[in-house]
Design a protein around this nucleic acid. Structure first.
Lengths: 116, 116
DNA sequence: GCAATAGTTAGCTTAATGGCTAACCAAATG
DNA sequence: CATTTGGTTAGCCATTAAGCTAACTATTGC
């Protein structure tokens, strides 16, 4: 994956991984527990954890024979920022269009060339 | 791609496609113009447009021999909503933890069993 | 009407994804 | 100490993604 944002968005582009994230917002948990609701072999499931970790969404530490997985605070920041910026530019453009529309409206309600 | 959110997030998990989105926030454009900054064969580029369209991020219409591409208003809604909800639950949990911490703090500042 | 332009269709290649099994290792438990 | 438990490693498979070229179609402009 080229850049950070690619791996962040693509980490979230999978139901299994989003489920894991949702579970983790309610507190960290070992892999086995996270895997339980997903009908999937452990090695397959671990790949999802790996992808979340590589994307920085999650961090893990080993405690005894368990691997504890926890959400990384602020991990979604870049994604949210990007989405917000798009909305901002988009809405800025709509505002300008609206202003223009109002101006044209005003002008058509008078004779053309009323205010030279 | 299974569900809607999968294809939405994965549509954004690519620099080329995010570039297209950013360009489109400043107004619709024909495919050729969108493709110009990207060193890529047209058919390859068109696949990106197709993916954006399938994800509902973009809509297209044919005008003469051109295909005009425009951003779909509110297309990011589901993604933003999901991200917001995670933050909300996450922060709610932090709040409860903080409250708990304060309570413990208060209790350790008195004799245990002071208020039975 | 002929040439250039803007896509489109078809078919190919390479690499990444998402899943599996089998076999292994290390910590915990009876 | 033997067994179970929780991961881990290795290797395989099918599908999808992301790129390409070549050849075709439909509009537009001279």
């Amino acid at each position: 994956m080229a850049n950070q944002m690619d791996s962040l968005f693509s980490a979230l582009a999978d139901q299994t991984r989003r489920d894991v994230v949702e579970r983790l917002t309610r507190g960290e948990a070992p892999v086995k527990e996270l895997a339980a609701p997903h009908d999937m072999a452990l090695p397959s499931f671990m790949k999802h954890i790996d992808r979340l970790e590589e994307a920085g969404v999650v961090s893990t530490r080993k405690v005894g024979r368990q691997r504890i997985v926890a959400l990384t605070p602020g991990a979604f920041g870049p994604a949210e920022t990007w989405l917000d910026r798009q909305k901002q530019v988009w809405e800025g453009r709509l505002d300008r269009l609206e202003a223009l529309a109002r101006k044209i409206e005003a002008e058509t309600n008078t004779f053309p060339g009323d205010d030279p």
